[in-house]
Nucleic acid binder design. Structure first.
Lengths: 223, 223
DNA sequence: AGGAGCGAGTCCTCAGACAACCTGAGAGGT
DNA sequence: ACCTCTCAGGTTGTCTGAGGACTCGCTCCT
């Protein structure tokens, strides 16, 4: 069962996911021994070191444990992976869409609940974003994310705030290399902030939704 | 800074923990590049394969990400506290509100994207929920959650699906003891399902939003 | 029957080689 | 002056071969 000869992703990741599926699928129950490194390598059509790195990743994920001289043993078949791990594996467009789902409604709530301090935070983040616009992509994306975090914080819901914090690192990484293509600098978040500040929830939601939709079509158009 | 010549544990694990401490300790801020594999190997006094496996483990843990040709970059210095744990600690009303944020928009997407199989799943879940309505609270809540999971699945976004799965256990536990107070049995999810099936996103979103809002006021009124 | 010894199998680590890829500097043209 | 192209150096990705360390089952001897 050799892995595809084409290489859309690193071989190690392919091997890791392949083995993960087998384990989660119940091919090797808890306590059983996996085939040896050389056997797995031959079966997957990759080198031994590739298999070793895949097994190392599964060990870090808590699915297997290797004992020198004995073999690699399954210690769990539960998809113990936390939400964060799934996020990193998901396609950028899906992550971005989920982020849009979260933020559009959060903006609506923020318009009703934001305190004056929240507004001050958004205004400050807005200014920082404007400054960062002239700097590198990474700095700009950081400032942009900080602004959006401030807007979500205005919703005064700790679950939503934590959730956005989950998305932040993945989004930052994905967007930093795409700022040029996506035209993030052309967006006008000031209007959204003023809508939230003035308590106009539907307006804030509509503005954000339009921006996210435009970015999303660009994202799907040009990978 | 060579690792100890004695080997109480495998070298890879020592190297992994060593690097993890450095990253969590802030030696390399988010976004910075780690020294190259060969440099790290020399600095730790181990071979390059050992360093590679350590980096692979840290990548699986979500701390770093390696890009071929560029280097290994720090993407998080957070000690990976579990989002799930935070969910369990949050107030029920906040969790429920976040769930509403997620589902209302997911329903809107589902109306555009759901396949016929998705609709079949929702109809089946609807029937099961109707049957379960006569049974105990726990069974009914399970059936209700299954129905909502089917609706979210219709949005065809794996991130949203995973996210709802994250909420499910917490919601189930919290709602099972409150079904009587919240009047969940009185809701009419059939209308939402038919709106999704007929492609009417705004209608589906509005219906869900109304239901969630009503439940939320009851939830805050009588904890 | 019981224990010591042995050997096959396995993981652990290293070294070297080459491929694939990214980045930045410099040449060259507009 | 600015833009584009090329190229060289550095980095990660992958494979292979080798030897060390450890586990476990089998054999042989007492």
């Amino acid at each position: 069962m050799p892995l595809g000869s084409l290489r859309p992703s690193p071989l190690v990741e392919q091997a890791t996911e392949h083995l993960r599926e087998q384990i989660l699928g119940g091919r090797w129950p808890v306590g059983t021994r996996l085939p040896g490194e050389t056997a797995l390598a031959a079966s997957l059509g990759v080198g031994r070191s590739t298999v070793r790195e895949a097994v190392r990743a599964l060990a870090e994920a808590g699915l297997v444990k290797s004992r020198q001289g004995a073999g690699v043993f399954v210690i769990s078949t539960e998809p113990q992976e936390d939400f964060r791990a799934g996020l990193r594996r998901a396609a950028v467009a899906e992550v971005y869409e989920a982020r849009a789902v979260l933020e559009v409604q959060a903006a609506r709530l923020a318009a009703r609940r934001r305190t004056d301090e929240d507004v001050a935070g958004m205004v400050a983040a807005l200014a920082a974003r404007r400054l960062a616009s002239a700097r590198g992509d990474a700095a700009f994306v950081d400032a942009d994310m900080a602004l959006h975090a401030a807007m979500v914080a205005g919703a005064r819901n700790s679950v939503l705030t934590d959730l956005f914090a989950e998305f932040a690192p993945v989004l930052r990484e994905a967007l930093a290399s795409l700022t040029g293509v996506l035209g993030l600098r052309e967006a006008d978040p000031a209007a959204v902030v003023s809508a939230i500040a003035s308590g106009d929830g539907p307006e804030a939601a509509a503005l954000l939704n339009a921006e996210f939709s435009a970015t999303l079509t660009r994202l799907k158009g040009a990978p």
